[in-house]
Write a protein that binds this DNA or RNA. Structure first.
Lengths: 133, 133
DNA sequence: GCAATTACTTTACATTGTAAAGTGAGTTCG
DNA sequence: CGAACTCACTTTACAATGTAAAGTAATTGC
């Protein structure tokens, strides 16, 4: 009388290529650029610097910075440059650590991917008994 | 009478950290795992192999493979193993190239990020004239 | 003083990743 | 024989999210 389970087969424990360490908040094209910029300049960058460095529109950059600051990865400082308001963005200590951890996983992705170079040779046969979908 | 432009300031030409080469189709946690797996095994992998290697659910894996095959990055072969149907997935030639290109950009991201190691020292002062947001 | 610029923020929308449910062929058990 | 179950996926539904356009508030130029 045991009811049949309706939920789909759950994923395995932790696959060789699951890359659990790829933090979703960091693993985003635009955010990667922002973080790389901020990592290079430890003393912070202004909104417009980031905008130019990362080739983002104002709105786009603003939202991404919001995500990063809410995640505690960047900190925000308001100030004045001349008579115009300026906002400065800087990596937090833990943000720097999280980014470092992320980059370490990236390195392993690159390493994994470069194994392929060795298996690249081969005549590329159609596998016998298999038909194209 | 020139109308004021309503569209937001467009992004710059190509910023130092814009990472244009990060192909959206490839730059996705799950898909990265799938491609790394397939790159390692040039002769292809079965659905279940990928499922386990990448720790994905069936539905999830299916959709991602759909995206990758529609993009021409992986090719799909139907066959039989014993009496059960099996599908084999393999990188296409151009897919392998695209993945290689992507990984090269990843390497530059890692390199950019590791510049920070040098600027890591410092007493972390609050910048004078700036107030926390 | 009024239009335009600067420095962002907010809103609206379309894309998309994910889990749950569905499908259809094959196998097993009574 | 056929109902129940498994296997190998596919389809669907939904919530999350990245992006462009529009909005805002202060400041500057004419």
């Amino acid at each position: 009388m045991t009811r049949k389970r309706k939920t789909q087969t759950p994923p395995a424990e932790s696959g060789r290529f699951s890359y659990d360490g790829l933090d979703r908040v960091i693993h985003e094209k635009a955010r990667l650029g922002i973080l790389a910029s901020l990592a290079a300049r430890g003393d912070g960058l202004l909104f417009n610097d980031l905008k130019n460095l990362c080739s983002l529109t104002d709105g786009n950059l603003s939202r991404h910075l919001g995500v990063l600051s809410e995640a505690g990865i960047v900190e925000v400082w308001k100030g004045q440059q001349g008579s115009r308001p300026q906002t400065m963005y800087r990596l937090t200590v833990s943000g720097r650590q999280r980014f470092t951890d992320y980059v370490n996983v990236l390195e392993s992705v690159v390493a994994d991917a470069q194994v392929k170079m060795q298996s690249e040779a081969g005549p590329r046969t159609s596998p016998p008994g298999w038909a194209p979908a």
